[in-house]
Design a protein around this nucleic acid. Sequence first.
RNA 1: GGGGCCGUAGCUCAAUUGGUUAGAGUACCAGAUUGUCGAUCUGGAAGUUGCGGGUUCGAGUCCCGUCGGCCUCGCCA
Length: 588
Amino acid sequence: MGTFTKRTHTCGELRASDTGKTVTLNGWVQVRRDLGGVIFIDLRDRYGKTQVVFNPGRNPGAHSIAEGLRSEYVVSVTGLVERRPQGTENPDLQTGEIDIMVERVEVLSKAETPPFQIEEEIDAGEDLRLKYRYLDLRRPPLQEALLMRHQVYQIVHSYFDSLGFIEIETPILMKSTPEGARDYLVPSRIHRGKFYALPQSPQTYKQILMVAGFDRYVQIVKCFRDEDLRADRQPEFTQIDLEMSFVDEEEIWGVVEGLLAEVFREVKGLTIPLPLPRMTYREAMETYGSDKPDVRFGLALTCVNDLVRECGFRVFSDVVTSGGVVAGFVVPGAAGFTRNQMDTLVDYTKSLGAGGLVYCRWTEKGIETAVEKFLGKGLVESIARRMGAVQGDLILLVSDTWRKAYTILGTLRLEMARRQRLIDESLVKLLWVTEFPMFEYDEAEKRYVAMHHPFTSPNPPDADRLETAPDSVRARAYDLVLNGNELAGGSIRIHDSVMQQRVFSLLGIGEQEAKEKFGFLLGAFKYGAPPHGGIAFGFDRLIMLLTGARSIREVMAFPKTASAISLMDDSPGEVDERQLRDLHIRIV
RNA sequence: GGGGCCGUAGCUCAAUUGGUUAGAGUACCAGAUUGUCGAUCUGGAAGUUGCGGGUUCGAGUCCCGUCGGCCUCGCCA
C-alpha cells in the first residue's frame, strides 16, 4: 500500500528507437482486448496511448492479473519495449510501432464502469457529461482545449510582460455598482445588511491604478454577471483585462492587434494581416444589422427608403415618414423556397419582434410578391434592381424603426446564411467596430443608459451636445469582432471629474448617488488623473473560437448549465440556518 | 420573463391511429478465443418510459402541473 512503480515514460512518447528498453508506464486502461491467450491493453494518459501486451507464455502471473483489468482502472505496468511484429503496427497511434511486453503489473485503482465511454467522440448527453465532468475531462478534445487555453495564458503573460505591462490583482469582493449587469452579491457577516459584489469587471480598479501611475496594467481575471446564459456566456468567465495611460485608440488597438497576431501565429499557425479593418457602428448596423458583424459572407443589407417614401403601401411609406427604415437583403438562389418554408420564415421573423416580413421571389415567371398590388410592378422591379437581385433570388424586406429593422434583419441575415450554408468556417475575419453611441434610451426605465459603461469618454466634437442631444453623441468606444462574436470591448475613459459628473447626471445618477457609489473614483480624478483607456477580452470566447468549439463550456474545466447550475457539485446549494443567521439573512 | 426542441435499458435511440410480453445498437456480465487495435463468436442480465396528478376498459403515446437539459429573444454597461 502506498507505494507503486513510478513511470519512466508517458503513454505518448515511446517510439521504435526505444526498442529494448525496460520501461514503466502509469495510466488508465482505455480498453482490454482478450484473445484468450494474449491480452492487449491500451494504456492512456494525457500524452497519448500505448499498447501493452500480456503473454501467458512469457509471464503467466501478469497475464492472470490482466484478465481482471477493466476500463478506467489505473495501473502501473513495467516491461520491455518491443517492435511490433511486421504487419501489426498501428499507424493511427503515435506509439503504434511498439508494444510493451509486460513483466509486472500493479492495479493502482479500480474503477466502476463509467456512465459513458471515454473516447474522442461520444454522443452522451451534455448533462451527463457535466455531472461526470472528471470523466469527460479525460477525453482528448477537452484535454486539448484546456491545453490550448494554457498556451494562450502563457502567450498573454509573456507578450504583455515584454511590452512593460504590470500584472496586478484586483479585489473579488467589491462594491455593488448601479449600472450594467446584475451583480452577484456576497452578504457581509461583520456589517449587518451590507453586501459585497463580485466584479462584473475590474473596471474602476484598473482606472484607479492608472491614477496611481501604473501606466500599463494587465490581468487575466475572473468576472461575474448574474444574467441569463447562452452558448457563449457563463455566470463566471475570464477576461484579459488591460489599461494604459497617456494613449489614444491607436496605441491600444496596436497592442491588441499585436497580441492577436501572436496568439493566432503560435496556436493556429495563421498570419493575421494588420492593421485590422475598421468599421463604424453605424456602418455595421446598416450593412450587417449587427454591432458585431460576421463578414465571412455577404447578404449585405440595402435601405430602400427613398424608393418607397411615396409609395401606396402604408406599411412602408408610414415607416419612412416617421423616421424608420425599410431595408432588406437578397438571398441568392433562394427563389425556390416553398410557400410553406416562407410561412415558417415569416413566423420566425415575427418572433424576433417584426410586424411582418415582405418577400419577393424572382422566378422564371418574374418577380412574385404578395405586395405587388400595393407597390406596383415598376416599384417592385426598382427595389429588386437597387438590391442587386437577379432571377433565382429571394428578396427579404423588413420595415420598422431604425434600430429594430436593422437588428431583426441582422438576425435574419445570420439565420439565412446558416440555412444556405454560406459561412466558410475556415475563415478568420477580425475587425474593429468604432464610434458607438454614448447612450441608449431604456424604454423600461425611461432614461438613458451607457451603451458601453459610464466611464467612457464622449467623442470630443460631440461633447457639447451631451445635455442637448444625447442621442447624437458618439463614444470613444470600440469592439473587436471575430466572425460575428464580440471578442473584446473597450474605450478611452473619462479622466476628468467634471466630465464624469456630467455623464453621471445624464444617466440619472444624482450627485449624492454618484458620491456614494463612485466617490472614490471621482475623488481619485481630483488628484491628477492621466488620460487613459483600455480594453477587455472575453478569454473563454477567444479559446472557443480558436478551438472551434460550439460552446464556451467546452473550453472551461467546470462550467455551469444554462440555468447556472453546476451538475457535478450541485451548486448553488442550500446552507444551514447557522450560516444564514451569521449573515443576518432570512429566506422569504 | 417569452418562444422552440428534448427527457424510454448504464449510454445513444426506436416503438402505426392510445391496444398483447416496450425493442435495437453499444456498454456491461459469463463462456470461447495466442497479434488484436471499433477485435471476433456464443449466451446472459439489464426498464418506476424524468417526477406527480388526470382522462380512458387500456397511456411511453392524450391533458394539466412540475423537475432537468439544449438553443434562442429580452437581458448581458
